[in-house]
Write a protein that binds this DNA or RNA. Structure first.
Lengths: 163, 163
DNA sequence: GTGAGTGCAAAGAGTTTGCAGTGGG
DNA sequence: CCCACTGCAAACTCTTTGCACTCAC
């Protein structure tokens, strides 16, 4: 598929960062980068692995690459309410925004309002440096509400359905 | 140790909730409740375990009790940027607020502004139900800045910078 | 007395690491 | 050619679960 100039710019930029930091441009890293750039939304690592093709890159390598990317500011990692994490590419062209994540199917929707940014100066006043924040909403999406009506209906009784 | 009326009220309230839901008032549950009520800030589970006295309550029991408490709305669990979680008592008298967490020593400070609550209706409009949110700030606190690369000595953490 | 709750140990899930082999520069 | 990087498997951490025993009601 043809990539728009935006895509290319982000791609070149990331490769540039890797090179500048003395990292090699390997197949797994390129594949991961491409898949990341194709995502509209933050993505679970297993999904990334699936999209790259499990035979093309080991999970361990994926974690290692993502850690590297994160250090170089190429991706952002955000931890979810269930202990797993999502990764998303960082690009000056993509705006920083937040998400609504379905507690059941893990579907992610963007939510292009960031009310938290304004508070970072306040945090800075408390003496903190290198500030970041996490703002995510969790809920049950319409689809899962429909399906959820059948099984045990009572949403909050015993051990809820995690997995 | 003398507890203020506030403490007692919250304690009675929690016990009440447990009874109402048909749960038994056991030693581990009471111990956990008391320790939770003594916390000023959200607390890591190992710290709770330590404070209860490891010999008085098994970790597995702690997790089970906390899950029960969470379902009854006695505690709130929030997942951190490093995949672990903090627990804090829910009380009508304690306000819902957010935190600034030091990336290095894990020190937690409250931040008594919640800008996110106002956005939940918007999320509801998207069709979501049972909505919650996470808003946490991460940064490096003054102490850890001073100590530079050295691990923090003053803060209450044991295994700090992961591994 | 009886079943909910507990302690212990073992299993799980997600993530990280050790090591020998591979391929980018 | 050499060392950073990879794949594989094993380790690790945090959390959950199975099971027999115990204690709150």
């Amino acid at each position: 598929m043809p990539k728009d100039p935006q895509w290319k710019e982000d791609y070149e930029d990331a490769v540039q960062k890797l090179r500048a930091a003395g990292f090699r441009i390997t197949n797994p890293r390129v594949a991961l980068l491409k898949v990341l750039l194709d995502q509209e939304l933050p993505c679970r690592i297993e999904d990334l692995h699936q999209q790259i093709g499990p035979q093309h890159c080991d999970l361990a390598t994926l974690y290692r690459c993502l850690a590297t990317f994160q250090e170089l500011g190429i991706v952002r990692r955000c931890f979810l309410n269930d202990g797993t994490s999502l990764f998303e590419i960082v690009s000056p062209n993509r705006e920083h925004n937040h998400h609504v994540i379905c507690k059941i199917c893990h579907k992610v929707e963007t939510f292009d309002v960031c009310v938290a940014e304004g508070l970072e100066p306040l945090v800075r006043k408390l003496g903190y440096r290198d500030i970041s924040h996490v703002l995510e909403f969790f809920g049950i999406c319409e689809d899962c509400q429909d399906e959820g009506a059948q099984p045990a209906s009572s949403a909050s009784s015993k051990s809820d359905s995690k997995k």
